[in-house]
Design a protein around this nucleic acid. Structure first.
Length: 147
DNA sequence: GCCAACGTTGGC
DNA sequence: GCCAACGTTGGC
């Protein structure tokens, strides 16, 4: 799961312990949350638009997707005028902080690692903010983060 | 249903 | 700050 650290970083999650992953306004990402994500699923917390872009640590899904009511909040940056209480359109899971890596795993490092070459993150033009990760990729990145 | 225009993402 | 790539919107 990607987040810009200037908006919400892994340190913010560590402080909050748990957060609603709200504000997702992309159908593919939403569908992934509602259709795929289960409580207990392990999450790589990726800092996008960061210096350097990198995986900063781990979180885990702590609640199934439910309506994202920030879409109804006119004061929210995530307000969507099409959303109603009956049909909020958008959804979000909750995630809980697990750990910060001892060292961040940079995008550059991921690119250089042959076992990680298939990750969607590296595919051309890939902007999706929530992406699937295989168990092997997950383990490899954990090993790089906690050597 | 096509597609041009526009907005967003995110690495660089 | 630039811009490639992609998603969305809306006129037709």
């Amino acid at each position: 799961m990607k987040s810009e650290p200037s908006v919400y970083s892994i340190d913010d999650l560590k402080k909050d312990r748990e957060t609603s992953w709200d504000g997702i306004r992309n159908y593919q990402a939403r569908n992934f949350m509602t259709n795929e994500m289960q409580v207990g699923d392990q999450v790589l917390f990726y800092h996008s638009n960061a210096e350097p872009p990198s995986v900063a640590g781990l979180a885990e899904v702590s609640a199934l997707a439910t309506a994202d009511f920030t879409a109804l909040d006119k004061k929210s940056p995530y307000f969507d005028e099409r959303a109603t209480r009956e049909k909020p359109i958008w959804s979000c899971v909750k995630v809980r902080f697990k750990e910060k890596f001892k060292r961040t795993v940079s995008l550059d490092e991921i690119k250089k690692h042959s076992a990680l070459s298939k990750m969607p993150l590296l595919q051309r033009g890939q902007r999706l903010s929530i992406q699937p990760v295989t168990e092997q990729e997950f383990k490899t990145i954990c090993r790089l983060g906690n050597p």
